[in-house]
């Protein structure tokens, strides 16, 4: 029994999966904390919406355009700021997010505080989930490529990676460009689903919401990010049952889950790991050892010590 309400929640879940995967690439895989992911989402959303509304562009072209514009800004932000490290990068991305919001509030073409309304309702469950699956496949592909291994190397130890010949700035910008691309894609889908855009919807808290999905699911893990996006889209809806205590529960749940599973629900779990489980379940205990399969980023590699400072 899938009614319009569940279908809608599932659709939004798909949009969140795409955006969270983008952030996972930047923060989870490459280890660069970004607090401005909503800004890239808003850039993609506005660019796509303006293209459809003002220039009558077809939906798919608008989506692509929005994603590319977001990626362009990712690179633009990346060049100067990526020489910052750790929390200084985080604060710069947060600043970028606020700047984007304020600029949108001052742009006539973006409708200022009135926002953009009347965007055609072109996204639906199937377009969103086709693109979500494509994004997942892309992410797995990237993860298993030379690029993905360079990203991981930078996260684990930037200096060592540099010493081994990984040009960290180059790869970090690539990660930002790709991650922003997916944020922009998600933004375009969002714009054509909700049909209304307002700068206030892309504030700091939105960035935090997406970050929550990645961290809760398990940083660097693609199945984890998908699960995180799924859970955090569903939780506010499910918690409607507790009425006015909803946000109290939501906050408490974040704390509880982090204490219970500090590395996220599926931290260190990859599709290859899941495949190994399945093999083992179906073939008895004759499965291949953990992380040993030709899947590149096996579990063993990822579960090894994380930077532990606190």
């Amino acid at each position: 029994m899938i009614n319009a309400y569940y279908l809608q929640v599932l659709t939004i879940m798909g949009i969140n999966v795409i955006m969270a995967l983008g952030l996972n690439l930047i923060t989870g895989v490459t280890g660069q904390l970004s607090l401005g992911h909503a800004a890239f989402m808003s850039i993609g959303a506005y660019a796509a919406a303006i293209l459809t509304l003002n220039y009558g562009a077809p939906f798919w072209l608008a989506l692509l355009f929005g994603a590319l514009v977001a990626a362009f800004f990712g690179v633009l932000l990346g060049f100067p700021t990526l020489r910052l490290s750790g929390d200084y990068l985080a604060i710069a991305t947060m600043g970028f997010g606020e700047i984007t919001r304020v600029i949108l509030l001052n742009l006539d073409i973006a409708g200022r505080a009135l926002g953009i309304s009347g965007i055609p309702h072109s996204s639906n469950f199937s377009t969103v989930w086709i693109l979500a699956v494509l994004s997942i496949v892309t992410m797995v592909f990237v993860g298993n490529s030379r690029l993905g291994r360079a990203f991981l190397a930078i996260r684990e130890d930037e200096i060592a990676a540099e010493a081994m010949g990984v040009n960290s700035t180059y790869y970090k910008i690539q990660a930002f460009a790709l991650g922003s691309f997916f944020a922009g894609l998600g933004g375009g889908l969002y714009a054509h689903y909700i049909t209304y855009l307002n700068p206030s919807d892309f504030g700091f808290m939105k960035s935090i919401e997406i970050l929550n999905m990645v961290v809760l699911g398990g940083m660097g893990s693609i199945p984890g990010t998908i699960l995180g996006a799924g859970v955090l889209t569903a939780v506010p809806e499910v918690l409607r049952a507790v009425r006015e205590y909803r946000m109290l529960f939501y906050g408490g749940l974040l704390v509880f889950m982090m204490i219970f599973k500090p590395n996220g629900l599926l931290g260190g779990v990859h599709f290859s790991t899941i495949r190994n489980w399945l093999i083992r379940i179906f073939k008895g205990s004759a499965g291949s050892p953990a992380g040993g399969s030709r899947g590149g980023t096996g579990a063993g590699e990822d579960a090894k010590t994380r930077v532990q400072e606190g």
Binding site: M1, Y6, V9, L227, G230, V231, A234, V235, E237, V238, A241, K261, L265, L266, G268, V269, T273, I274, W277, A290, A299, A303
Partner: peptide, 24 residues
């Protein structure tokens, strides 16, 4: 590995509970 499987089970359980909650 078994610990990981346990956590995966817990995660899946969580999803099921959430889904059931939504369907109630």
């Amino acid at each position: 590995m078994s610990k990981k499987r346990l956590s995966a089970l817990i995660s899946i359980g969580l999803v099921v509970v959430l889904a059931l909650g939504a369907l109630l």
